[in-house]
Structure formats: structure tokens, C-alpha cells
Simulated scan of single mutants.
Amino acid sequence: MNLRPHDEQDGKKVWLSESEVSKLEAIASDTEQTIAFGLGARSGLRSKEILDVAPQDVVETDAGWVVRVWEGKGDKFRETPIPSDLAMRIETIGDMRDAAGDEPVLSISSTRSLRRWLQDAREQLADQEDERGWLFLSTHDLRRTWASALADAEVDPLLVLDWGGWEDLETFLDHYNGTYSPAAQRRAREKVEWL
């Protein structure tokens, strides 16, 4: 876990490692929470976008599985990759409902409820892991984690901008790609014998 102070507010920005994202998903109390956390940390959706996802928004394209964000920030449309296991969970919920697939996957409709889900999970993880850093985790940090993981995997920054719905590279670099992942730090340390 990487932590950095916010520039103009209390608290910290948080970037989770892959294993920490897995711990967050594992501690979720049900399938809906697992989906919500995954849409943030694995597809880079904003809180409101997470709440709006319906089964019909998850489609398999020539590029692979994507989640369609019909009205993202500024009412802009975009498609962003979604892991196939997460896509299948969402598809299964749609099949179980036997409906048109246009109803949101999550039974909650407010960002406050989503924040509460994350608050419960982070408090459990802080106790379980004896790691105070979990207490700073926000839903926006899930998006931050996703963007940094893509950068660490050397995904073309312009493609990350497109998937994430950012207008310009400067915004992305200022707010999302502000730290190196634990994997990148580990690779750098391995280059130095005495570390």
C-alpha cells in the first residue's frame, strides 16, 4: 500500500497493490460488494458510474469484455475493460433476474451507501491486517489504484486516458499516477544490491 498526503485536504491518497485489491474483494460481505469494489479497482469506474452499471452495459467486443459507461463525468460515453470473471458475475445477476438487463446490478442507489460499504470493509481490513493505512481508503482510491496498475503494466498512457475518461494527460498524472506500485518499487530495489 502506498500513501501520499492530499494536496489541499486532510487524509491520504491510497494506491493498493494487486494482493491488497484481492483482500478487499475477499472481505466484501456479498456478491454486490465484490462487484462494486471490482468495478472501481479493476475497471476504474467512478462512484456514480459503479451505481449505474446494468447487465446490458457489460459486453464482449473484439477488444474483449468492456463495461459501457453511458453517462460518465460530463455526460461522456466511454468503454473500459472489465475482467471476464467480473463480467460473468454481472451477467449471471442479469440472467437470474430474467429481465431486460437494464436495471442496475447493485441494490443501492447512493454514493453514501457505496462509501459505507467501503468503510466497513476498510475498517475490517485495518483490524485484520493491523495496518492503519486501510482507514484512508476511499472509493476514488480504487480508481487511482486501477490507473496506476495500468501504468505499471506499461499500457499506453493515451489508452489509459481513453478508458478512464480523462480529458488530458496532465490531470491524469497530477491526480492518479502519483506513485509507483509496490511491484515497480520491488523491481527497482532488486537493481541495488544493498537494498
Rank of each mutant, 00 (worst) to 15 (best):
E129V: 09
E129F: 07
D130P: 00
E131Y: 12
E131D: 15
R132V: 13
R132E: 15
G133W: 05
G133F: 04
G133S: 14
G133V: 07
G133R: 07
W134A: 02
L135R: 15
L135P: 05
L135K: 13
F136I: 01
F136M: 00
F136S: 13
L137I: 02
L137S: 02
L137C: 02
S138L: 11
S138H: 08
S138K: 12
T139V: 11
T139I: 13
T139C: 09
H140Y: 09
H140F: 08
H140T: 07
H140D: 03
H140S: 05
H140N: 06
D141G: 01
D141S: 02
L142K: 00
L142A: 03
L142T: 01
R143P: 01
R143Y: 09
R144E: 03
R144F: 01
R144A: 01
T145D: 00
T145H: 00
T145L: 03
T145I: 06
T145M: 04
W146C: 05
W146P: 02
W146H: 10
A147V: 09
A147K: 01
S148W: 02
S148F: 04
A149D: 09
A149S: 13
A149I: 10
D152K: 00
A153W: 06
A153G: 09
A153I: 04
E154S: 14
V155T: 14
D156W: 11
D156P: 07
D156T: 06
D156V: 09
P157S: 12
P157A: 09
P157Y: 08
P157E: 13
L158S: 12
L158N: 10
L158D: 09
L158K: 10
